[in-house]
C-alpha cells in the first residue's frame, strides 16, 4: 500500500520536473546552491566572520583596482573579509527565515484548526487576531516587541515566527471548515474518530499542499523582514552577522566602499526572487483546479 503511494508520488514529481520552465530551473539551482553554502559555511569560508585585520581595511573586490586574491570580495571597515561574512550571513539569515517560517506555519495551522473545530467565540477571537495581524504593519509590531523586551536571538526568531501566521490560519481554517461540514471529515467522525485523528490524519494531509505553497511564498518575505529589522539595528546583533545586518552597518560607507552594501543586497535580491518564483510555480502546479492546463 505504501509502495503504491510512493510510486504515485515519484511519478508526479517527475512530471513536475519535465514541465519546469527555465526560470524555475534556475531558481531551483540557486536555492540548492544557497542552501549548500549555508550548510558548508565553516568549510568554504576563507576567514572567520569575526576575524579583523585593521591594517587591511576597506579593500575593494578583486575585479577593481587594488583588489587582492586573498579577499575576493574585498574587506569592510574593520578589515573583515566580505566574502566570508556573506557566507556566514547566508547561514544565519536562512536559518532564521526557515525557523520563522516553520514556527509561523505550525502556529497558523494550529490556530486555523482550532477556529474551525471550536467555532463560536474561539473562532471569533482567532478571526479578530487574524484581522489585527493583517491590519498592523508587521515591522512596527516587531520593532515594538524587540525594542521593549531585550533583543536576543531566540526572541528574534520567535518574532519572525509570528510573521505571516495569519495567512496559514486563514487558509487552514477555510479548508478545514469546508472539509468538516460536508466531506470525509464528517465521515471519519461518524466512524468514531477523535478530533485529533480527524485533524492530523485526514485534514492535515489534504491541506498540506496549500500549507507548503504558503511556506515557500512566506519564506522570502521572512528573509526580507529579517534583513529590514537587522538593517534598522533591531535584528541580528553584532558580532553575529546576517545579510541585513551587513547592509545596515555598511551604509555609512556606501559612497566610498559600496561593495559592503551591494554584494549582500544582491544575494538577498536573488534569493528572495528565486523562492518567490518557485513558490508561485508550486502554487500553480499543486492547485488541482489549475492542473491539466
Amino acid at each position: 500500500m505504501n509502495e503504491h503511494r510512493n510510486t504515485a508520488d515519484r511519478k508526479t514529481w517527475r512530471d513536475y520536473l519535465t514541465v519546469m520552465p527555465p526560470s524555475i530551473l534556475i531558481s531551483a539551482i540557486w536555492i540548492v546552491f544557497i542552501v549548500a553554502v549555508a550548510v558548508l559555511a565553516d568549510v568554504i569560508a576563507p576567514y572567520d566572520y569575526k576575524h579583523m585585520d585593521l591594517l587591511d581595511r576597506l579593500r575593494p573586490p578583486i575585479w577593481m583596482e587594488n583588489g587582492v586574491w586573498s579577499h575576493l570580495f574585498g574587506t569592510d571597515d574593520l578589515g573583515r573579509d566580505v566574502l566570508s561574512r556573506i557566507i556566514f550571513s547566508i547561514r544565519i539569515s536562512l536559518f532564521v527565515a526557515l525557523l520563522g517560517t516553520f514556527i509561523g506555519a505550525v502556529l497558523g495551522t494550529t490556530l486555523g484548526f482550532a477556529a474551525a473545530h471550536f467555532r463560536g467565540r474561539v473562532d471569533d477571537l482567532i478571526m479578530i487576531l487574524i484581522d489585527f495581524q493583517a491590519a498592523l504593519p508587521f515591522l512596527i509590531l516587531a520593532l515594538a516587541v524587540l525594542a521593549f523586551f531585550e533583543n536576543s536571538f531566540l526572541l528574534f526568531v520567535l518574532v519572525m515566527g509570528i510573521y505571516g501566521w495569519e495567512r496559514y490560519a486563514r487558509i487552514v481554517r477555510g479548508l478545514a471548515l469546508s472539509a468538516s461540514s460536508t466531506g470525509y471529515a464528517v465521515a471519519v467522525r461518524v466512524l468514531g474518530a477523535s478530533p485529533a485523528r480527524v485533524y492530523l490524519r485526514h485534514i492535515l494531509p489534504n491541506v498540506a499542499s496549500a500549507i507548503i505553497v504558503n511556506m515557500t511564498l512566506n519564506f522570502p518575505e521572512t528573509i526580507l523582514v529579517e534583513t529590514s529589522l537587522s538593517f534598522l539595528g533591531l535584528g541580528i546583533q553584532p558580532p553575529l552577522t546576517s545579510l541585513g545586518n551587513m547592509v545596515g552597518f555598511g551604509r555609512d560607507y556606501l559612497l566610498t566602499a559600496w561593495w559592503i552594501v551591494v554584494l549582500p543586497s544582491i544575494v538577498i535580491f536573488i534569493t528572495s526572487l528565486a523562492f518567490s518564483l518557485l513558490g508561485d510555480w508550486l502554487r500553480d502546479v499543486l492547485d488541482p483546479t489549475l492542473r491539466g492546463n
Binding site: 460536508t182 466531506g183 470525509y184 465521515a187 471519519v188 485526514h202 494531509p205 489534504n206
Partner: peptide, 13 residues
C-alpha cells in the same frame, strides 16, 4: 453518505 466521493478521504487508498 449521499456523495461518496466527498465522504472518502482523497489521499487514502
Amino acid at each position: 453518505f449521499q456523495d461518496p466521493l466527498g465522504a472518502l478521504d482523497p489521499r487514502m487508498t
